[in-house]
Measured scan of single mutants.
Amino acid sequence: MKTQEELTEIVRDHFSDMGEIATLYVQVYESSLESLVGGVIFEDGRHYTFVYENEDLVYE
């Protein structure tokens, strides 16, 4: 089982391919040991929310 830090790094690596990240945040109250819920804001102003669970990243 991966730690929350490892899950965060996986998500950061994925989004870094889309541009320069200004902020990546995790909603700790919605996340667990198996899933990571949060959002990412890019330097150009784009903002996505995401759920990473079971090695699957869903964002909008």
Rank of each mutant, 00 (worst) to 15 (best):
E34D: 08
Q4S: 06
V40R: 00
H47G: 04
V51C: 10
E34A: 12
E43K: 15
E53I: 15
R12Y: 10
Y59T: 05
M1Y: 13
Y59M: 08
E43A: 15
S31V: 10
E6I: 07
T3Q: 05
G45N: 04
Y29K: 05
V26K: 02
I41P: 00
M1E: 09
D56V: 15
G19F: 03
H14K: 13
T49R: 10
E60D: 08
V11D: 01
Y48D: 00
K2V: 05
G38N: 00
T49C: 08
S31T: 09
I21P: 02
I41W: 07
M18S: 04
F15A: 02
Y29A: 06
E43Q: 12
T23Y: 15
Y48T: 01
V40Q: 00
G38C: 03
Q4D: 04
I21M: 04
E9S: 12
G19P: 02
V51M: 10
E30D: 14
E34W: 07
V26F: 06
H14I: 15
I10M: 10
T23P: 01
G39C: 14
Y52Q: 02
R46I: 05
V28N: 10
G45L: 04
G19Q: 02
G39E: 13
L33S: 12
R12W: 12
A22P: 01
N54V: 05
D44I: 02
Y25W: 08
S32H: 12
Y59F: 11
L36T: 02
V37C: 11
Q4T: 06
L24H: 01
Y29H: 07
V37L: 08
D56F: 15
E43R: 15
D44F: 02
E30L: 10
Y29P: 05
T3L: 05
G39Q: 09
H47C: 07
T8K: 08
F15S: 01
M18K: 07
S16T: 10
F15P: 01
L57S: 02
S35P: 04
L24T: 03
V11K: 02
D56Q: 12
T3Y: 04
R46A: 07
R12F: 08
T49D: 05
Y59K: 04
Y29S: 07
E5L: 13
G19I: 02
N54A: 10
R46Y: 04
E9D: 12
E34S: 14
D17R: 14
I41Q: 04
Y25T: 05
E43N: 12
S32C: 09
S35W: 10
R46N: 05
E55F: 11
F15L: 06
Y59L: 07
R12V: 06
I10P: 03
G19C: 03
K2R: 10
S35E: 06
S16C: 07
V40L: 04
D56T: 15
T23I: 12
V37T: 15
T49G: 05
V11N: 02
Y25F: 05
G38I: 04
E53T: 10
D13Y: 13
Y59C: 06
M18Y: 08
E60N: 12
V28Q: 14
H47L: 05
V40K: 00
R46G: 04
G45V: 01
T49S: 12
E43Y: 10
V51Q: 07
V40N: 00
V11S: 01
E20L: 12
T8G: 05
V26Q: 02
G38M: 02
S35L: 15
L24G: 00
E34M: 12
D17E: 15
Y48P: 00
T23G: 07
I41N: 03
Q27A: 12
T23V: 14
E6S: 06
E9W: 09
D13K: 15
L33V: 12
L7P: 01
I41L: 08
Y52T: 02
A22Q: 12
L24W: 04
V26P: 01
M18D: 03
Y25I: 06
A22W: 07
L36N: 00
G19V: 02
V26I: 14
E30A: 09
L33R: 14
L7M: 07
V11R: 01
H47R: 07
I21E: 01
Y52K: 02
D44V: 02
F15K: 02
K2N: 05
E43C: 12
S16R: 12
F15W: 03
A22H: 11
I10F: 09
L57A: 02
E5W: 11
V51I: 14
L7V: 06
Q27K: 14
L33W: 10
K2E: 03
Y59G: 03
E30M: 10
D17K: 15
F42I: 02
L7K: 04
N54S: 09
E34H: 09
E5F: 11
G19S: 03
V40Y: 01
V58P: 01
T23L: 14
Y29V: 06
Y25P: 00
E60V: 14
E34G: 15
Y59W: 11
D56K: 15
E53K: 14
M1P: 12
G38P: 00
V58Y: 13
Y25G: 01
K2Y: 06
L57V: 07
H47E: 08
V37S: 10
T8L: 13
Q4E: 09
E60L: 10
F50R: 00
G39W: 13
V28T: 15
F50G: 00
L36P: 02
Q27S: 13
G38T: 02
K2D: 04
K2F: 06
E5K: 08
V51H: 11
L36R: 00
V40W: 00
Y59N: 02
E53L: 15
G45D: 03
T23K: 12
L36G: 01
L24R: 00
F50E: 00
Y25K: 03
V26L: 06
G45E: 03
V37N: 06
G45Q: 04
L7S: 02
V26W: 06
E30K: 11
R12G: 04
V26H: 03
D13L: 14
I41D: 03
V11Y: 02
D44Q: 01
F50C: 02
G19W: 03
E5Q: 11
D17M: 14
T8F: 10
S32M: 14
D13Q: 13
M18N: 03
L57M: 06
F50D: 00
F50T: 00
H47M: 07
Y48R: 00
E9Q: 13
M1I: 13
S31M: 10
Y59R: 03
V28H: 14
L57N: 01
D56P: 02
E43I: 14
R12I: 08
Y48F: 12
F15N: 01
E30G: 07
N54Y: 08
V28K: 14
